[in-house]
């Protein structure tokens, strides 16, 4: 199961998609051509609305976005994606060194803010980083989702026990803290491992930490 998930995770990375959103068809096409030249899947969108229609949220995504878009602007699109809790990472492209916009964009999680005409290597590096970040985000979400699913069957008492174990308490410590016998704690721990499908509570702790700190 772990292997399957890992391979799934690798697959997500390789299937990352670069969306180029620019109202200038030539520039859109040119960036697609450049991005395509290193093997990324590239999709051109004319507007923010088109992107919102086409974006596949279950795949790592990088947006190469013109700040100045007709209709929904680049920054507005960024807010919209944030509201949707999208995993897509955004690289802004601008004609001018528009500092206030750049600051806002970075604060809202943009990967970078590149000025036209940009250095191709920098763009491709940033795209790579963005896709990695997006993939990591997707992985984290998947982990959290799996963990939540596994922990979904735990009783209230079992959750209390798990919380104390993660906090570093020994079985005796847990027993005294919850005012129950050590034997009962051991039973709870066994039930937790069985319900979450893990071989040891330690592994459970690693997962939980991953989900928490991503």
């Amino acid at each position: 199961m772990s292997d399957a998930r890992m391979s799934d995770s690798q697959g997500v990375v390789s299937q990352g998609v670069v969306y180029i959103v620019d109202d200038d068809p030539a520039l859109r096409d040119a960036i697609c051509f450049l991005v395509g030249s290193v093997g990324y899947a590239a999709r051109a969108c004319e507007s923010a609305a088109e992107l919102l229609r086409r974006i596949e949220e279950d795949r790592p995504a990088c947006l190469v976005l013109d700040v100045r878009l007709p209709g929904l602007s680049g920054l507005e699109l960024q807010r919209e994606l944030y509201a949707r809790e999208s995993s897509a990472r955004i690289i802004f492209i601008t004609g001018h060194g528009d500092i206030p916009k750049a600051v806002r964009a970075i604060r809202c999680g943009a990967v970078d803010f590149l000025e036209k005409p940009f250095d191709d290597q920098v763009l491709l590096d940033r795209i790579g980083e963005a896709l990695d970040a997006s993939a990591a985000e997707l992985r984290r979400r998947a982990s959290r989702l799996g963990l939540e699913r596994r922990l979904a069957g735990l009783t209230e008492r079992e959750r209390d026990v798990l919380r104390l174990v993660i906090a570093g308490k020994t079985s005796k410590g847990v027993a005294s803290a919850l005012d129950i016998s050590a034997k009962t704690v051991e039973n709870h721990r066994h039930n937790i491992m069985t319900k979450a499908g893990v071989a040891s509570v330690a592994q459970l702790i690693v997962w939980a930490t991953e989900v928490a700190h991503g």
Binding site: D24, L27, D29, A30, K116, P117, D120
Partner: peptide, 8 residues
């Protein structure tokens, strides 16, 4: 715009 396109 065209310059950026050309470069890309």
């Amino acid at each position: 715009q065209p310059l950026a396109a050309i470069l890309s």
